[in-house]
Simulated assay, not measured.
Amino acid sequence: MARIAKIPEERRNELIDAATTLFLEKGYEETAVSDIVKKINVAQGTFYYHFKSKSEILEAVVDRFISGIETTLAEIADNRQTPAAIRFNDAVNYLIAIAEGSREVLDDVHQENNAVMHDRIAKMTMARLVPVLARIVDQGAASGEFNAHHPAEATDVILSALFWQFHQPRLMEDKQRLARIRATLEHLLDRMLGTPDHTFVLNLN
């Protein structure tokens, strides 16, 4: 079957699509560059025209996932007409919705043969999303809504607590414990950001 010539950006996106599918199905460790090119019927030279290594295409896979989340969070953060507390609450609930809607993907990422992918996602998430959420906290502190002395560190701790919950799929089956964790996280938000009790309401159900 003859290969179809495509513009470079389109071919690059196809390679990322193929790598994403294979990393989730087989695991990053078990996927070879030859598997990726075979999936879309291109030569290995095409792969190396776009990416230097399997590690580099993993960066592209994770970047695509995080970029979409980062864009939406930035839209929430930059809506200055909305009070900071509401924006922060909306941002956290957006992250919860993403995690709950991606449960099967997260289960695949948490497999032992995807440890490298999991680590890359965790590092890029903290590096890219903490500054966006910290921006809301900075604005809330400036307006007097928040009383957080270290916005970036507070956001780091809050995200870490959320990520711990995302890594506990069985929690979703224990509704009573999930309710207690939700109340604890809401209390943590109030204490760390210096807001009145029950300012934050998380959509953990």
Rank of each mutant, 00 (worst) to 15 (best):
R11Y: 00
R11A: 07
R11P: 03
R11N: 05
R11G: 02
R11Q: 12
R11D: 06
R12K: 11
R12L: 04
R12I: 09
R12W: 01
N13C: 05
N13S: 11
E14Q: 15
L15F: 07
L15I: 01
L15H: 07
I16Y: 01
I16H: 01
I16P: 07
I16D: 02
I16K: 04
D17T: 00
D17Q: 10
D17R: 10
D17E: 13
A18C: 10
A18R: 04
A18V: 01
A18Q: 08
A18F: 00
A18K: 03
A19D: 09
A19R: 05
A19H: 09
A19T: 08
A19Y: 08
A19I: 07
A19W: 04
T20L: 11
T20I: 14
T20E: 13
T20C: 13
T21A: 15
T21S: 13
L22F: 09
L22G: 03
F23H: 11
F23G: 09
F23C: 11
F23K: 11
F23T: 13
L24N: 08
L24W: 01
L24F: 01
L24E: 08
L24G: 07
E25V: 01
E25H: 10
E25D: 10
K26W: 06
K26H: 11
G27F: 02
G27N: 03
Y28M: 08
Y28S: 06
Y28I: 15
E29S: 11
E29A: 13
E29F: 04
E30L: 12
E30R: 14
E30H: 14
E30I: 06
E30S: 14
T31E: 04
T31V: 03
T31W: 10
T31L: 10
A32Y: 05
A32F: 05
A32Q: 12
V33K: 04
V33G: 03
V33S: 03
V33C: 03
S34R: 12
S34E: 12
S34V: 12
S34M: 08
D35A: 02
D35Y: 01
D35M: 01
I36M: 05
I36C: 06
I36V: 05
V37A: 01
V37Y: 06
K38Q: 15
K38R: 13
K38E: 15
K38W: 14
K39F: 09
K39Y: 04
K39Q: 14
I40A: 06
I40N: 08
N41Y: 15
V42G: 02
A43N: 14
A43R: 12
A43W: 15
A43C: 11
A43V: 12
A43F: 15
Q44S: 13
G45N: 10
T46S: 15
T46D: 12
T46I: 00
T46H: 14
F47M: 06
F47N: 02
F47W: 02
Y48V: 00
Y48N: 06
Y48Q: 04
Y48W: 04
Y49E: 11
Y49R: 11
Y49H: 14
Y49W: 12
H50T: 02
H50G: 06
H50F: 04
H50K: 06
H50I: 02
F51V: 02
F51K: 03
K52M: 02
S53Y: 10
S53A: 00
S53M: 00
S53P: 07
S53N: 00
K54G: 06
K54P: 10
K54Y: 09
K54W: 09
